[in-house]
């Protein structure tokens, strides 16, 4: 179980998150809210890329607030970036192998790599030896990023807007990917998303607005409110895709 206790985060003297508290014990939690509301900041705080200015972060009751990115990864936290990183010279296979824990130069088998890639709708034969560099499109990178988290198989996986840049056909498959993950996972999945269909498979929805939690609760309670739009709503959430 992941727990945020009164977490605040300030950068360049701007308050980006204020007193954020929540728990994630459900299998599938969606985080939504307008652009710039602080969703990615929450993801980076979970992964250890940012450290809270105040407050505590606990994983299964252990205080991880001051642990490094590496330590948290080794405790079972996975993070698929909103903007995946490109590497000159490292191939799809290299990255999936590293994700699967092979740091000593050994590579995962072609069959395993293919299984992860075909899950995310990429033809393994075409992609396995491609460099993860500027020649890949944004949508391809996003899918490789998802394949990497599958190879990690962590107890807590955070996806930051996995649908961004992915076309409609692939999007349908993506929903299936998350459905499958939902069935298989023994841990928790946190997805930051604006997409109704992703929110619809969540157990719990957290709505972030202006660096604070505007609403939080079971899907059945939150989703109808969100879909009503801003008129007369007690919280606002943009359903536009981030650009």
């Amino acid at each position: 179980m992941l727990e945020f206790q009164n977490v605040s985060f300030t950068a360049d003297s701007a308050d980006i998150l204020r007193n954020v508290s929540f728990t994630v014990s459900e299998r599938f939690v969606a985080v939504t809210g307008p652009n710039g509301s602080g969703k990615s900041t929450i993801a980076k705080l979970i992964a250890g890329i940012y450290t809270p200015t105040s407050g505590k972060i606990l994983l299964d009751g252990v205080d991880i607030t001051d642990l490094s990115i590496t330590e948290r990864a080794r405790m079972g936290i996975s993070f698929a970036f909103q903007q995946p990183v490109r590497f000159k010279g490292l191939t799809v296979k290299d990255l999936i192998s590293l994700a699967a824990g092979k740091v000593d130069g050994k590579k995962i088998s072609a069959a395993d790599a293919c299984a992860y890639l075909s899950e995310v709708g990429l033809c393994a034969r075409e992609y396995i030896d491609r460099e993860v560099n500027a020649s890949l499109s944004g949508g391809e990178l996003k899918r490789i990023e998802i394949a990497m988290t599958m190879a990690r198989g962590s107890q807590l996986t955070v996806f930051d807007e996995p649908e961004a840049g992915i076309d409609l056909w692939s999007f349908n498959n993506l929903i299936d990917v998350f459905r499958k993950m939902y069935d298989k996972t023994k841990g928790s999945i946190i997805i930051i998303s604006h997409q109704e269909r992703i929110l619809d498979i969540a157990d719990k929805i957290i709505v972030v607005s202006g660096g604070e939690i505007a609403a939080m609760g079971e899907k059945n309670e939150i989703l109808p409110e969100l879909l009503k739009g801003s008129g007369g709503c007690r919280f606002t959430a943009s359903r536009k895709e981030d650009c």
Binding site: I49, I69, R74, F79, P84, V85, L95, L98, V103, R152
Partner: peptide
């Protein structure tokens, strides 16, 4: 790039 690989446990 460093950060990404560190999130993989390196």
């Amino acid at each position: 790039q460093l950060m990404k690989l560190m999130t993989l446990g390196l």
